[in-house]
């Protein structure tokens, strides 16, 4: 990944592959592509707080779920679909900024527990506020007109656009003072504070960024599926899956979240198809293998060494 343009070229190529799936793939492939684009957006978002700033946030599902409900409620109130997504984004951003200002005082284990607590509290509030949210029965969202194929194509494009937007924001953050400051925080927060990084502000911005697109994606997901309920919208499994995808690719990098999500989702599809009963256990095994054998993610592997070991690359001549 030495050259400057390679990550962008790879990302562009990946966008083309995903966007053209309706032309060459079955409906199943298109569905997988939508899910990949959706989770890539979530993983890129998590990367701001978890990758750049190194904070173990497990609140992705809270923002996704609040986005689902904000979008669905706005749509049911008659707000046009795209506007409802924007409303959801703003609502989630505001909630995340407020929560971030409170919980980012904590570090390490306490922060992790608090971020999990937020998911639980959000789920419990939504499911017990029956008059507004339908409680455990869930909510129906007005479906788009048009056949299922047309709808799938539209939502494929929507998810890809959101994914591209989150990638662009990642690039901007990566090159800005903000990205530099967040990397300082990740390495040593106290030292960063000492040399003049505004820790508090930077962390809140990173946390808010990590939530914004989760809100948009949640709202778009609600419009796509047409039905939401608390246990699907606020699943702790999602909150852990997203960081795992990012870790698989390489946290704190541009392309890591994209590669990690693609690899993980494809593995998961294979497991779902072949081992229906054991897919969770296999996910667990993937996590264990990832942590023991791929500590820096796929991007940190030294591919030249691996290729050499399997004889794919010629041995470099030893200096005499």
């Amino acid at each position: 990944m030495k050259s400057r343009w390679l990550p962008y070229a790879l990302f562009a190529a990946w966008v083309v592959v995903l966007a053209t799936t309706p032309l060459w793939g079955s409906n199943y492939i298109v569905r997988v592509a939508i899910m990949i684009a959706m989770f890539t957006g979530l993983t890129l978002s998590w990367n701001f707080i978890g990758g750049f700033a190194g904070y173990p946030s497990f609140s992705t599902a809270a923002f996704f779920g609040i986005g689902c409900y904000a979008g669905a409620l706005a749509q049911r109130a008659g707000v046009p679909m795209v506007l409802a997504w924007i409303v959801a984004t703003v609502v989630v951003g505001a909630i995340a900024a407020a929560l971030g200002a409170i919980i980012l005082k904590m570090r390490g284990h306490y922060f992790a527990i608090a971020s999990i607590g937020i998911v639980e509290v959000a789920r419990l509030i939504i499911s017990s506020w029956g008059s507004l949210t339908g409680g455990g029965d869930g909510l129906n969202v007005p479906l788009m007109s048009g056949g299922p194929n047309a709808v799938a194509r539209i939502f494929l494009l929507v998810m890809i656009v959101i994914m591209i937007m989150s990638f662009i924001v990642t690039v901007i953050v990566d090159r800005s003072r903000l990205g530099f400051g967040l990397r300082c925080i990740q390495q040593n927060e106290d030292a960063a504070n000492m040399v003049g990084v505004n820790n508090r502000l930077y962390k809140v911005i990173a946390y808010t960024l990590s939530a914004l697109f989760c809100g948009t994606i949640g709202a778009a997901h609600a419009s796509w599926t047409g039905y939401i309920d608390p246990s699907d919208s606020f699943s702790i499994l999602m909150s852990v899956k997203v960081p795992v995808m990012c870790l698989l690719g390489g946290p704190g990098t541009l392309l890591g979240p994209v590669i990690g999500t693609a690899a993980f989702m494809m593995l998961e599809e294979v497991f779902w198809a072949n081992f229906l009963d054991y897919n969770r256990a296999i996910l667990g095994a993937v996590i264990v293998i990832l942590i023991f054998f791929l500590p820096g993610g796929l991007l940190a592997l030294r591919y030249r060494d691996i290729a050499r070991r399997f004889g794919l690359l010629r041995e470099p001549k030893m200096a005499a």
Partner: peptide, 19 residues
């Protein structure tokens, strides 16, 4: 860091839970 240890125990939990 906590992210690694928590994720590892979560992975083990998924395996036990599934079985």
């Amino acid at each position: 860091p906590v992210l690694t240890t928590l994720t590892l125990t979560f992975g083990l939990d998924l395996i036990l839970y599934n079985f």
